[in-house]
Design a protein around this nucleic acid. Structure first.
Length: 436
DNA sequence: TCTGGGGTCCTAGGACCC
DNA sequence: TCTGGGGTCCTAGGACCC
């Protein structure tokens, strides 16, 4: 079973997983929520995260709030507060980094740490080091964690999940197989629906069955690299390095939005895209990054994607420039008389602001001259709220409200009853075009 | 799978070159 | 311009994750 070693931890990898993270952060911040069933996701009408108390009532993720309120009127529903959640995430990373710099910020509620070789320094076993970090996380954050120790990331994930909430599980290399025996292959990290189906066809249904195949079998069945790595780690080996890059050096920015009902109207779809471009650019500015390429996509009602990739002659986070380019190529993906439900934009090849080089025709100069205007737009939007200043092209999208929001709006403003367009002024500004 | 939004990584295949 | 063989770079799209 072991690929190369009978030692317990040739590498010692920890995985930390915050229990019911969003709901736990809410409870940590507000003592009145502690010990009570709390559900986040109030703003979208479906449960995003549930406190342990809420889970005990039989509620699950994705459940509509309406149903939740009917089932359990005592449940406390709160809106998601992603700013708070990411502050807690950063605290979590910072605490783990006090023990080792080898930390991967995997997601808002999870991280990996490599503590190989640190036993001497802490005069403790790997398991004791793991429990020490776990204790400090829980005491400082007021949130419990599922923690796993294993020779690699794939098994550490299995370990941290093993005794949730609040558990610690150590799986040395020679004991890995006992955890794989009854584990469906689809539950292994990195094996999704389509790989699961492919493996089922090959007669593999449990993680152990996969792990005990030999290399000959992998070759014969053309198992791709990501799955060969998983296979190796399920045998106790080490294949997936930790990614140590700090989470705010991002590689790309994506903004997508689904609207209801789906539409055929070209102008409306383009306007949705325009709005996405604006918010993606605002995010890029917040990171002081500029894309050198973008791609946009449209998704039809039947979940068919059509995408278009475009290079920018000059790196820019100016939405007007990107919108012009996208508009020029829009009809490459937009097919008339098809219902669309989602648009999205990806800003790619991000480079630091200031790192942009001048091109032959001095275009970078023009882009830089517009920067103060964008900065002004950002601060206006910060001061007076999102969407105070927007591109005229995004107007249709911004005025369109989701059905349930619209209902709230009309009940609240039934006496006024102005068409939305008249509620805010539209003025002309040089550079930005029409803004309101 | 029954469908929200934000990301990363891998691979197959085409373009181009020697 | 058919023909080998081999290499690199790029992109579209798939698969997966939280």
């Amino acid at each position: 079973m072991q690929p190369f070693s009978i030692r317990s931890y040739p590498r010692a990898i920890l995985h930390f997983d915050g229990d019911s993270f969003f709901a736990s952060v809410e409870q940590a911040m507000n003592h009145r929520l502690r010990g009570k069933p709390v559900v986040t996701g109030g703003e979208r009408g479906a449960a995003t995260a549930l406190s342990i108390e809420a889970k005990r009532l039989g509620l699950t993720r994705g459940m509509p709030m309406k149903q939740i309120r009917e089932l359990c009127p005592e449940v406390i529903v709160v809106k998601s507060d992603y700013t708070a959640y990411s502050i807690y995430a950063r605290r979590m990373y910072a605490i783990v980094r006090r023990y080792t710099p080898m930390v991967e910020e995997y997601s808002i509620d999870e991280c990996f740490a490599d503590i190989t070789g640190l036993r001497g320094m802490y005069h403790r076993s790997y398991a004791q080091i793991g429990e020490m970090i776990k204790r400090e996380l829980e005491e400082s954050l007021g949130i419990t964690f599922g923690v796993g120790l294993a020779p690699n990331k794939v098994v550490a994930k299995i370990a941290s999940k093993h005794r949730k909430p609040g558990g610690f599980t150590a799986i040395p290399a020679k004991e890995v197989h006992t955890f794989l025996q009854n584990m469906p292959i689809g539950q292994v990290w990195g094996v999704g629906y389509s790989m699961q189906m492919a493996l089922h066809k090959l007669g593999v249904t449990t993680a152990l069955q996969f792990a005990t195949k030999d290399e000959q079998w992998l070759r014969a069945n053309k198992i791709a690299k990501p799955y060969r790595e998983i296979w190796w780690e399920l045998r106790g080996g080490f294949a997936k390095e930790l990614s140590l890059t700090h989470n705010d050096d991002i590689g790309s920015i994506i903004k997508t939005r689904t609207f209801a009902p789906p539409t055929r109207e070209r102008a409306f779809v383009l306007s949705q895209l325009s709005k996405n471009i604006e918010s993606a650019c605002a995010k890029a500015r917040g990171h002081h990054m500029r894309p050198r390429a973008v791609s946009f996509f449209l998704k039809t009602q039947d979940f068919i994607y059509r995408t278009c990739e475009l290079d920018l002659s000059v790196a820019t986070n100016d939405p007007a420039v990107i919108l012009r380019l996208v508009e020029a190529h829009f009809d490459r993906v937009f097919v008339p008389n098809i219902l669309y439900r989602t648009t999205g934009i990806t800003l790619r090849n991000l480079v630091e602001e200031g790192a942009a080089t001048l091109d032959l025709f001095g275009e970078a100069q023009v882009v830089n001259e517009r920067q103060p205007i964008l900065t002004a737009v950002d601060s206006l939007n910060k001061k007076y709220g999102k969407e105070t200043v927007i591109l005229a092209a995004s107007l249709k999208a911004v005025n369109h409200l989701e059905p349930n929001k619209q209902r709230n709006m009309t009940t609240r403003t039934s006496k006024v009853h102005l068409p939305l367009e008249q509620r805010k002024k539209t003025i002309d500004l040089p550079y930005l075009g029409r803004v309101r």
